[in-house]
């Protein structure tokens, strides 16, 4: 409950503050957001599985974000940033879908 409120508060702050994204962060922010969403859905699923752990969630959240950004950064250095970020988004998207499917089966038995 409190984390959900936190999410809403974060969105509200972002809308109200209207921060400018630093240029160096521009390519990585969308990937980081998708990675974080993956971690969130993974956390919900783990909670429904009864194996949720705060520490695991925090570590997976941070590592997801950092690894996704690193991969894209590496891709940019190698000259395949666009393709690699597409790949990362696809992988994370598949994971989000499978997590959501698992959550759906828990809640709706379908």
């Amino acid at each position: 409950m409190i984390p959900a409120l936190g999410l809403a508060v974060g969105i509200l702050i972002g809308v109200l503050v209207k921060p400018d994204v630093p240029v160096w962060l521009l390519p990585y922010l969308p990937i980081a957001v998708v990675a974080a969403l993956d971690a969130v859905f993974g956390g919900i699923r783990a909670a429904l599985d009864g194996i949720f752990d705060d520490k695991v969630f925090v570590v997976s959240f941070l590592s997801n974000v950092v690894v996704a950004a690193l991969i894209v950064f590496l891709g940019d250095q190698l000259g395949v940033g666009a393709q690699l970020s597409t790949g990362v988004v696809v992988v994370l998207g598949v994971r989000i879908f499978s997590n959501v499917a698992s959550i759906r089966r828990h809640l709706f038995k379908a």
Binding site: L37, G43, V58
Partner: peptide, 27 residues
């Protein structure tokens, strides 16, 4: 609602995620 150290961390991350999400959408 529970108040533990873990919840606190998770909430901080959630706030960050929401902030980043809104920022990215706007940008």
């Amino acid at each position: 609602p529970r108040l533990t150290r873990g919840t606190l961390f998770v909430t901080v991350l959630a706030v960050l995620l929401g902030f980043a999400l809104a920022t990215q959408l706007r940008a």
